[in-house]
C-alpha cells in the first residue's frame, strides 16, 4: 500500500519528465516555426506577383491549410502518409511536418499582407530615384514590411506553440502528454495540469510581451 502511495505521489523525477516535455514542445515548435517561416516567405512573395496566375498558385496550398483544423491535418499526415507511401514517419516527424506546413500557410498570408500594406507611393519613390523593382523591394519595401510583419509573426509563433499541444494526440511525449501521463498516474489532475498550464504560460507570456514591445517600437506613420 505504501509502495502504491509512493508511486502515486509527485516525485523529483517528474520534474525531469516535465523538463523533457518542454524540450520536445520547444523542439517541435522551433523547428516548425523555422521551416514554416521559410515556406511562408517564399509563398508570400509569390502571392505579391502582378501575374494573377502566378499569385493565385500558392492559394492551392494556403487555403486548405488555413480552413481546416490543425488536428485533422495532424491525423491526415500521421495516419495518411503510411497509407499512401511505404514510409512510416515517426510521430515527431509528422508533428514537425504538419506544424511547419500549417505555419507556412499562415505566415504566407502575413508576408503578403505586410508587403501589400506598403503604399504604392513608396515603390514609385524608389523607381523615380532610378532603382529597379528588385532594388526597391530589397532597400525600401522589405525593411518596412518587416517592421509590420514582426509583431504579427510573434503572435503567430505564440499560437503555434500552443497548438503544438495537439501533437500529444499522436503519442508524441511533449509537455501536454507528459502532464496527462503524470496526472493519470498521480491522480492529481489539478496540480499536474496546473504545472503544464504554468509552464506554457512562462514560455508564452514573455513572447506576447515581446510582440507588444515590437508593435510599439515599430509604429510609424506614412
Amino acid at each position: 500500500m505504501q509502495a502504491f502511495e509512493k508511486y502515486r505521489s509527485l516525485r523529483l523525477l517528474d520534474s525531469l519528465q516535465f523538463l523533457r516535455g518542454i524540450g520536445v514542445t520547444l523542439e517541435v515548435t522551433l523547428l516548425s516555426i523555422a521551416i514554416g517561416t521559410f515556406i511562408g516567405i517564399i509563398l508570400g512573395i509569390i502571392r505579391c506577383s502582378k501575374n494573377k496566375a502566378v499569385s493565385s498558385l500558392p492559394l492551392i496550398y494556403i487555403e486548405p491549410l488555413r480552413n481546416s483544423p490543425l488536428v485533422t491535418q495532424l491525423f491526415l499526415v500521421y495516419y495518411g502518409i503510411p497509407m499512401i507511401t511505404n514510409w512510416m514517419p515517426s510521430a515527431f516527424t509528422c508533428a514537425v511536418l504538419t506544424l511547419s506546413l500549417n505555419t507556412g500557410a499562415f505566415f504566407a498570408v502575413l508576408v503578403n499582407n505586410s508587403i501589400k500594406a506598403i503604399p504604392q507611393g513608396q515603390w514609385e519613390a524608389g523607381y523615380a530615384l532610378g532603382h529597379g523593382k528588385t532594388s526597391v523591394f530589397i532597400h525600401f519595401i522589405v525593411p518596412q514590411a518587416f517592421r509590420l510583419l514582426i509583431p504579427q509573426a510573434v503572435t503567430l509563433y505564440i499560437g503555434q506553440l500552443q497548438c503544438s499541444s495537439y501533437v500529444a494526440l499522436i503519442s508524441l511525449i511533449d509537455l501536454t502528454k507528459t502532464g496527462e501521463t503524470i496526472s493519470l498516474r498521480t491522480m492529481m489532475p489539478f496540480v499536474c495540469w496546473g504545472i503544464v498550464f504554468a509552464l506554457y504560460f512562462i514560455i508564452s507570456f514573455p513572447l506576447s510581451k515581446l510582440a507588444q514591445y515590437l508593435e510599439k517600437k515599430n509604429e510609424f506613420a506614412y
Binding site: A125, A128, L129, G130, H131, P143, Y222
Partner: peptide
C-alpha cells in the same frame, strides 16, 4: 530616371530611414 528626378505631390520619404539615409541610400547603391 537618373536624368529626370521626380518629386511628387504627396511627399514620399522612406519612413524607416532618417533624413541622411533617405538622401544617401540611392547615390551609394
Amino acid at each position: 530616371r537618373l536624368n529626370c528626378g521626380m518629386v511628387f505631390q504627396q511627399t514620399v520619404l522612406f519612413p524607416h530611414l532618417d533624413v541622411m539615409h533617405n538622401m544617401t541610400v540611392s547615390p551609394i547603391k
